[in-house]
């Protein structure tokens, strides 16, 4: 899209937004209006919607989601009570989808000055949150990497293996943003290219541009493993913190603590055990309270 067109669109959208704000700013129930999505930080085109979060006074809200129209442009509104907004934002782990959504946005209007400070605070991603988000991303990377390996070695379908390899690009991009304390977004890959062009070349542009040979695929997988291993010191922290009392904790307990589920988290835990960061142990348990025989449940412990 040429620059002139872009500028015109911007003006049109800005006017629509201003009109909208004028309509609601005298409503004492509205405390703040936050603009998110592409209109806030990205290039617009004719089909862009305007994503707006409206923080209202504490009250019962009938419908949280509303789509309204202003100058033929669709505004997707999300209404949220002030208390819920505050608690929800503080609860959200930095780097998570919700946090990123709001953090990438900007305050258009507020009657409460202290919200500006609050908003700035939300944008910052603390180290602990970085570690946790990196953990989830690493988990995702590992399981996709294992799929690539399976389709190379076990199924010998190189094309499908390459497809999976390409899938890792998004997670790698998000990882690059995460470790720098930058919230994720839909244009993560574009951002990551500017932050770490070599890595993105290796895992995004090359697999896209050509069909990789078996050797090339294997080489990429090796490098991916190294990439993940390089980040261990960041994403091992939440796990080690939970295991710091040196007691065996089962996979279910760890999953519960990290707000995830067993089947997902076991991937990263096994990985950490393979790399000798934590140790694997088994605990005999009964499948149901009435069962008499035991099975061995997987647990982990940390020995410093």
């Amino acid at each position: 899209m040429n620059e002139k067109k872009q500028a015109e669109l911007r003006v049109r959208y800005q006017n629509a937004i201003d009109q909208f704000i004028n309509k609601i700013k005298d409503d004492i129930n509205v405390i703040a209006v936050i603009l998110s999505g592409s209109v806030a930080y990205d290039v617009i085109w004719e089909k862009s919607d305007v994503d707006i979060t409206i923080v209202v006074r504490d009250q019962k809200i009938k419908s949280e989601f509303l789509s309204i129209v202003e100058d033929d442009i669709t505004f997707n509104l999300f209404l949220i009570q002030r208390s819920s907004f505050k608690r929800g934002m503080e609860r959200a782990i930095g780097g998570s989808i919700w946090q990123s959504y709001v953090a990438n946005g900007k305050i258009l209007y507020t009657t409460d000055d202290s919200l500006y400070d609050f908003f700035e605070d939300i944008k910052k991603i603390g180290d602990d949150d970085i570690s946790l988000t990196a953990l989830y991303l690493a988990c995702d990377l590992i399981s996709t990497m294992q799929k690539v390996e399976k389709w190379i070695y076990a199924r010998n379908d190189l094309l499908y293996a390459q497809y999976f390899l390409l899938k890792t690009a998004e997670s790698i991009a998000n990882m690059e943003l995460c470790i720098r304390g930058i919230p994720t977004s839909r244009s993560a890959i574009q951002k990551a290219i500017s932050l770490n062009p070599d890595i993105m070349r290796f895992f995004y542009q090359e697999p896209l541009e050509k069909l990789l040979t078996r050797e090339e695929l294997i080489d990429k997988v090796k490098k991916l493993d190294l990439y993940i291993e390089d980040k261990i010191d960041i994403f091992k922290k939440p796990v080690l913190e939970y295991l710091s009392d040196q007691e065996i904790k089962t996979a279910s307990m760890i999953a519960n603590h990290l707000d995830s589920n067993d089947h997902f988290i076991i991937t990263i835990l096994d990985y950490l055990a393979d790399k000798s960061v934590i140790e694997k142990a088994y605990q005999p348990i009964k499948l149901t309270p009435k069962s008499r025989l035991s099975v061995e449940e997987i647990g982990f412990l940390y020995i410093p």
Partner: peptide, 17 residues
């Protein structure tokens, strides 16, 4: 310790029935 986890409900495993 198991008992503590049980009452804190951080354990979902049947080992702590």
């Amino acid at each position: 310790n198991w008992y503590k986890h049980y009452i804190r409900r951080t354990a979902t495993s049947e080992a702590f029935e």
